[in-house]
């Protein structure tokens, strides 16, 4: 074996994959050629060093970020892109729920980004004209505030309505509480409730609103995504 052939076999030799005949020829050459012996020594050392190279360990929040991406991918795969999910919350995507034999209440949930200080309002639409131009936030961010808007569209005036809203673990009111209770009258048309909320935990969460009049009640649930602040 000459030097050129020996050089081409060094890598296979250090990996121990040369056939017996070739290995013997290679070793014979190495024993009589100091330059190739030196090359072999360097190659062995190089391989040893590379075996010691390690990438850093995954960061602590790698799995949390990945989880959010997987959840998002799952819904996109199913044709429920986040945009479409939140489209569903728009007032035009109304859902009629019977609250009594004579009245219909249309409920929609919308997540807005916003900086208003209000914790809760129950009032007519005229008082919230400013929000008509509010930009949509498709998801809430952890540790950031946003406005959760509920619009109860009533077919007629309804007296003595009891409203309860339960926020899940992943979302809280700005003051940290999770339950809202209100009693009053629904006016004909839009009845808007605004909640200043904050993302608490990453995930997909159900916000539950319960309307009750006497013994008749209706519960409406909507999914809200809370995403990591940095994504």
């Amino acid at each position: 074996m000459n030097c050129k052939t020996a050089k081409s076999k060094i890598s296979d030799y250090v990996d121990g994959i040369l056939e017996t005949d070739e290995r013997i020829l290679f070793e014979n050459h190495i024993s009589s050629c100091p330059r190739c012996a030196e090359d072999l020594k360097k190659m062995k050392k190089l391989k040893d060093i590379m075996g010691l190279i390690q990438a850093p360990a995954l960061s602590e929040d790698f799995d949390r970020k990945l989880h959010y991406k997987l959840i998002e991918a799952k819904y996109r795969n199913q044709g429920f892109a986040l945009e479409r999910i939140f489209d569903f919350f728009r007032p035009v995507s109304v859902r009629v729920v019977s609250i009594s034999a004579v009245a219909a209440v249309v409920v929609a949930l919308i997540v807005f980004s916003g900086r208003r200080n209000e914790v809760i309002f129950v009032n007519g639409p005229g008082d919230f004209a400013g929000y008509k131009t509010a930009s949509f936030a498709r998801v809430l961010n952890v540790n950031r505030e946003g406005i959760l808007k509920l619009n109860f569209v009533s077919g007629k005036k309804i007296k003595n309505i009891e409203l309860k809203i339960e926020l899940p673990d992943g979302i809280a009111l700005a003051d940290g509480s999770r339950n809202v209770e209100w009693r009053g009258n629904l006016r004909k048309g839009n009845n808007i409730v605004l909640l200043k909320v904050r993302g608490v935990k990453v995930g997909q969460w159900d916000v539950r609103a319960n309307l009750r009049k006497n013994s008749v009640e209706k519960t409406v649930e909507r999914k809200i995504f809370v995403k990591p602040d940095e994504i």
Partner: peptide, 21 residues
Amino acid sequence: LSRARAMLKEVLGNFLNGQSV
């Protein structure tokens, strides 16, 4: 792999002499 190692060996040169890992 053989070519890659040869390139590395060439680049690292004498650096691979003598040093214990």
